[in-house]
Write a protein that binds this DNA or RNA. Structure first.
Lengths: 213, 213
DNA sequence: CGGTAAGCTGACGGCATGACAGGACAAGTT
DNA sequence: AACTTGTCCTGTCATGCCGTCAGCTTACCG
């Protein structure tokens, strides 16, 4: 499915080329997590990878192009988040555990990929369709099954409930909370307290009820 | 309070100088809402203002410095958001109206300043203390009185409720929803439907009850 | 061993950055 | 009007990054 990896000028990349390419991506990833996005320069990435800027431009059109590559990789990886919701029960105490595990897993994923997700979020907010699409893919890996869960849990009793809207809000909240957990700290909410609070919100949103104690 | 406006090299800016400075800020604001942050260049801002890059550097250390200026101005302006919560009632139908107006006002503010807020959000996420502080000021203008409202409404009956955590979550959600309203559209939630949904979440969060119909 | 394609880089023109010195200008003084 | 003073702007320059290309090196294959 994925065609051969190609250089910008159309050559087919071989073993050595792919290694170099990968090293550049790794170094870029590293750069992104240590410097402001605005200050990430091709020359720095190349230097860190022990190669020259010209080599960088063989494999990527520019910094943004390489960032998109990393982001797409990360988006593929986000497929695993589905398992946090799919086939889980939202009834009673088990339901609250589902909620806790979802929050935990989602925050862990976001934290693991925080640097690249920061850039994706910015790009999406700026209206870049490619970044927007990637962001939606990540969010949808949770939002889609979650909307289904809402419909299954509340849809029968209350036809006015909009599963997509609720699931969307919850996922949006989780993403923002993960990205700005520091803000909560400054509100006097410790990271340990944050998780149960989010879990509570998720449980409330999905089931429409307060959790059993 | 605000000392005289000074140039980078320490001179006091006069009438004409302040005009130029302001024009540069206005043009930068404009640039930010039309180009990706990464691509905003001093030379473009200067050109748009009908002046030279050297002039820009007389008034600001760099693009970031000027952006901080705009952001601080915006943060001052955010003080007015307090009025959306202060002295409002959360009881019954009136309470839901309070919630609706809060959502409306907050989203309007965010939309009006979306370009600069995007950059502030990025800076805060990247760990820049100056941007973080500005972002907290904006969020706190709503979060602080909202936390108080939560304590007043639920704190009496339930000691385990953490007003700061709930208010923080709600404000975080509102900010993220404002910044990424497009995501909701792609989930099939129209902008018109988004507001009531958020209002519902806010009402639920503050009062702990479902709203009266 | 020679041919072919992949892989890498030095070098270059172009543009942005950031600093400085000096010219233009406004406003008051003599 | 000529002069003074301090503000304001820009031409210019050194530096550094961008993005491209020609050409050299390396690896593989018959």
């Amino acid at each position: 499915m994925t065609g051969q990896v190609r250089t910008v000028d159309g050559r087919v990349a071989g073993r050595r080329g792919q290694e170099t390419r990968q090293k550049l991506l790794d170094c870029l990833r590293e750069m992104l997590s240590t410097s402001p996005y605005r200050d990430v320069k091709v020359i720095d990435v190349a230097r860190m990878a022990g190669t020259s800027p010209a080599t960088f431009y063989q494999y990527f059109p520019d910094v943004e192009g390489a960032v998109l590559e990393i982001a797409e990789e990360m988006a593929e990886d986000s497929g695993g988040l589905k398992e946090l919701v799919d086939g889980k029960s939202w009834a009673g105490k088990t339901g609250f555990t589902t909620s806790e595990e979802l929050v935990d897993g989602f925050l862990a994923f976001w934290r693991k990929n925080d640097a690249i997700l920061r850039v994706v979020t910015l790009g999406a907010a700026e209206g870049d369709k490619r970044f927007f699409k990637i962001r939606m893919k990540v969010l949808n890996s949770v939002a889609a099954p979650l909307a289904e869960a809402v419909r299954n849990t509340q849809g029968k009793t209350d036809k006015t409930v909009d599963g997509s809207a609720i699931a969307g809000s919850l996922v949006t909240l989780l993403a923002a909370a993960a990205e700005h957990s520091k803000a909560f700290t400054s509100w006097g909410v410790k990271v340990k307290d944050l998780k149960p609070n989010l879990a509570l919100q998720v449980y409330l949103g999905v089931t429409g009820k307060k959790p059993p104690k």
